[in-house]
């Protein structure tokens, strides 16, 4: 479909974005290879969600360009190849009368297309995706009757059900318990290695994901770092302190010298 062959799932070139007067993204260059598993990190308000929304075409760029699978997002049509779990997935209208099954099947609507209906095969896929996140007991419950973490799993199932080539997750594990988080990351790794799905994971906790990811990008208005996990581990102390403005170390969970440093509050200004 006129798609140029490129090794990149996403090419972000010279991108600027501001909400009114507030500059949020400045001159971002970032190329994400197909098949990689990227962690996107940065302090609150650093523009991570904004960048994601630009990639998804929900916000219009003031400057620069973004390509998905070699095609400019302005001309991109295959949105069903892209799965997305938004950061505020649990701030949807929580009284909405829809069952888990109904919510997950929404993930197929874009793929099925206009004027067509869910077939039996589609329904099987929906059930499979629900099983994948361990929510099969709740299939016919209303989404509003679930806990926050359970809702989050349902939204993840919705993103998975269409078997996307690129899956973007904006802090998907907020409110999910520790054991489920481990399972969840394992599932993501499986998707990445076995199904070759490109993954972007926005997170505040790189330490928890270092063993799963392949690349890291650090954002705070500008892109401060992009490289593979090894490079990141070498530079992370320096990186984190320039980005967060304090001496903050990443807590690597599987090491025994656990620090209990917290990410200190900061006002987001003068960090460069």
């Amino acid at each position: 479909m006129g798609e140029k062959k490129t090794p990149y799932a996403i090419e972000i070139d010279h991108v600027f974005f501001s909400y009114g007067q507030r500059d949020v993204l400045q001159d971002i260059h970032l190329k994400i290879s197909e098949g990689s598993f990227l962690a996107l990190v940065g302090p609150n308000g650093s523009g991570k969600s904004t960048l994601i929304k630009c990639i998804l075409g929900l916000l219009t760029l003031q400057k620069g360009s973004i390509k998905l699978f070699g095609q400019s997002i302005k001309k991109f049509h295959e949105w069903n190849q892209i799965g997305f779990v938004s950061q505020k997935a649990n701030s949807f209208n929580s009284g909405f009368p829809a069952t888990v099954f109904e919510v997950v099947s929404m993930g197929l609507y874009g793929k099925i297309g206009l004027f067509r209906f869910l077939t039996k095969r589609h329904k099987e896929k929906v059930k499979e995706a629900i099983k994948q996140v361990g929510m099969e007991e709740y299939m016919n419950q209303n989404i509003g009757e679930l806990s926050g973490g359970q809702q989050q799993r349902v939204f993840i199932a919705r993103a998975l059900v269409s078997e996307p080539r690129l899956l973007i997750l904006d802090e998907p594990t907020v409110g999910v318990d520790a054991k489920s988080v481990q399972n969840f990351y394992n599932m993501l790794r499986k998707l990445n290695t076995e199904k070759k799905i490109t993954l972007i994971l926005v997170t505040h906790d790189v330490g928890a994901v270092t063993e799963y990811i392949t690349d890291v990008a650090c954002l705070n208005k500008c892109l401060h770092f992009h490289g593979d996990t090894h490079e990141f581990e070498e530079k992370q102390d320096e990186m984190m302190s320039t980005m967060y403005g304090h001496d903050v170390r990443v807590i690597t969970h599987n090491h025994d010298h656990d620090h209990h440093d917290h990410f200190h509050d900061h006002d987001g200004s003068d960090l460069r």
């Binding site: 998804l56 075409g57 929900l58 049509h77 949105w79 069903n80 892209i82 997305f84 938004s86 949807f92 209208n93 909405f96 829809a98 109904e102 919510v103 929404m106 993930g107 609507y109 874009g110 793929k111 099925i112 206009l114 004027f115 209906f117 869910l118 919705r158 269409s162």
Partner: peptide, 21 residues
């Protein structure tokens, strides 16, 4: 004809738009 689209848009407009509706 449009049940699924209206349903999705009512539930979560942003996601519906992302999936190309």
């Amino acid at each position: 004809l449009f049940y699924k689209e209206w349903f999705y848009l009512s539930f979560d407009e942003e996601q519906a738009v992302v999936s190309g509706i």
